[in-house]
Amino acid sequence: MKSELFVNGKSRVVEGHPMDRLLDILRDELGLIGTKEGCGEGECGACTVLMNGEPVLSCLIPRIQCEAATVETVEGLAAAEARAFLEGFVSDGGVQCGACTPGIIVTALALLRDNPHPDRQEVQTALAGNLCRCTGYEGIHRAFDRGAEDE
């Protein structure tokens, strides 16, 4: 099937099997390799993108549900939003290997849109669907704390 999506603000027409994953559409058809596969079954959050403004797991979304959808990936979001947060995220130790990072950034930016000053518990609730194996999550908390301090 052929579908039109709006990815990072641009119309993109893609074609393939209705049950192909949005993750593969982004990576293989559109070359948006920032979105990572960590488990392929909705557990790790590495493939998080915003669909119609909400964080979702692109490994669990079939092509048939992408028609006319607005999709924002890490490439689009990181280029447009919260540069200071992203820099702090690096310097505060939110990043180590980086494989979970795009998913975490997408979820984090979605949280900050709704809630510019999340407390520790709100950060935990929002990011509970994003596994990180390197940082112990403490550097991620620091990045949010600094954001609050900078305000």
Partner: peptide
């Protein structure tokens, strides 16, 4: 249920 992303879907 799940996390934020799962709850959205």
């Amino acid at each position: 249920i799940g996390g934020w992303q799962i709850q959205n879907r």
